[in-house]
């Protein structure tokens, strides 16, 4: 199990599960299990990740990124 925080940038992954605590919130932003996701950049000093998902870009805090499990797409 790899979470989004641990994957290298600029490689596409597929979301396999989302921790229950963040699931509803992410759904509100149109992020679903099975979507492909690519980390575009990471802000320094514990800042958020910028990810591309369904041709949109979303900024995700690290605590949220940690709750998203991904596998190689």
């Amino acid at each position: 199990m790899t979470n989004l925080l641990e994957v290298p940038i600029d490689i596409t992954f597929r979301i396999t599960s989302v921790h229950e605590k963040a699931r509803k919130k992410l759904l509100q932003y149109g992020l679903h299990i099975g979507d492909t996701v690519r980390v575009v950049r990471i802000a320094p000093m514990g800042g958020p990740l910028l990810v591309e998902i369904n041709s949109r870009e979303l900024a995700l805090g690290r605590d949220i990124a940690e709750k998203i499990t991904v596998e190689a797409a």
Partner: peptide, 9 residues
Amino acid sequence: DTPGLIMEM
């Protein structure tokens, strides 16, 4: 109890 930043860029 909020999970943190989620923001459309």
